[in-house]
């Protein structure tokens, strides 16, 4: 019997009788991070990192939440469980599970580079490692965050020179906070779409330290003059919607790892493209896997077949696993309160 089984409800630890990131309601769910494809509604008990709890509350409402700090152990039905930073978004954690001297790590989503906000990814030694593969192709190599931020600032300045507003498309949880660091120097109000603003305030109310900026929500009452040449952050669902009209003339920039490929930039028809990702790039994935010294690597959401085949050819035992991760709901939030 594997310590963690891949069932139709999610990753299941039979010995401990708990699930990790289940996509169906269960009795006991350990949550790696608060993105909607990993943290689903309806379970009776949730265990997560202290910083994840307010985010789950904002997204899933009131539930039974139990929290732990990173590297704090907890025993569930005789199985030792601990959380370790995954570097993906605020609170994101890898779940270490130990039983009968066997260690498994479910990493959820992760990135190896430290973004200064999400906690630095911690390599955890284990026998079996469950890894994502969102960007599991060698064409994905991220540039240093500072370089991307520099490009973004230059893009905003160029827009201002043409009297245009800059609409930056970023996931409201994770990316939106990350790019605030790039915008700190502008010393002006950063406008936010309702969805972005709600998440921003949820984080501030939970005392999570964010870059010091003055954020303001865009409402139907916000006078158009105030929005001239402004900087505004909005979720992917707002891109291309009539909500943008308020900012005319404007330019749209998208922050996503997918922007590395020209085809995606052209398909999205955007003015600015920033290959900024909260997932590990190819080398990041390989580096993380090697550091675990795992004998077995299970590859989930992304390029699992390609990445798994490559690992096997490199002498690392690997298998692909089908999960329901990798589909953030945010693309659909177009009509979320403005």
């Amino acid at each position: 019997m594997q310590l963690i089984e891949f069932t139709d409800k999610g990753l299941f630890c039979r010995a401990g009788n708990f699930y990790i990131d289940p996509w169906k309601p269960v009795d006991y769910a350990i949550i790696t991070h608060a993105h909607s494809d990993h943290a689903k509604w309806g379970s009776k008990n949730y265990l997560c990192h202290t910083l994840t709890k307010p985010l789950l509350q904002a997204r899933l409402g009131d539930n039974v939440y139990e929290t732990v700090e990173w590297n704090e152990s907890k025993t569930i039905n005789g199985v030792k469980v601990s959380l370790h930073p995954a570097g993906h978004i605020i609170g994101s954690s890898q779940i270490r599970v130990e039983y009968n001297n066997e260690v498994w790590v479910a990493s959820g989503d992760y990135k190896v580079a430290d973004d200064g906000l999400s906690g630095a990814f911690e390599p955890v030694k284990c026998n079996a490692f469950i890894t994502e593969s969102t960007f599991g192709l060698p064409i994905y190599n991220w540039k240093d965050q500072e370089l991307i931020f520099e490009n973004m600032r230059n893009w905003i300045l160029a827009n201002k020179a043409l009297n245009k507003a800059s609409i930056i498309i970023a996931y409201s949880l994770g990316k939106a906070q990350r790019i605030l660091k790039a915008l700190e120097d502008f010393d002006e109000t950063i406008y936010m779409h309702g969805a972005t603003y709600n998440m921003h305030m949820a984080l501030i109310n939970a005392n999570i330290p964010l870059p010091k900026i003055n954020a303001e929500r865009v409402t139907p009452e916000t006078p158009k003059e105030k929005l001239k040449e402004c900087i505004v952050i909005a979720p992917p669902g707002a891109e291309g919607s009539s909500w943008q009209k308020k900012f005319s003339p404007y330019a749209v920039g998208v922050c996503s790892g997918w922007m590395q490929v020209r085809g995606n930039v052209r398909r999205k028809n955007v003015d600015g493209a920033f290959a900024l990702s909260d997932h590990a790039d190819w080398n990041g994935l390989l580096q993380a896997i090697k550091a675990t010294e795992a004998e077995k690597v299970y590859v989930t959401h992304g390029y699992q077949s390609v990445f798994s085949r490559y690992l096997n050819e490199q002498g690392i035992w690997s298998a692909e696993v089908k999960t329901e991760y990798g589909e953030e709901d945010e693309e659909k939030v177009t009509d979320e309160v403005i």
Partner: peptide, 15 residues
């Protein structure tokens, strides 16, 4: 596989 994802030889190599 990379080419399949990028759709252009010149760009695949550049990446």
């Amino acid at each position: 596989e990379c080419y399949g994802s990028v759709g252009d030889t010149a760009e695949t190599i550049a990446l």
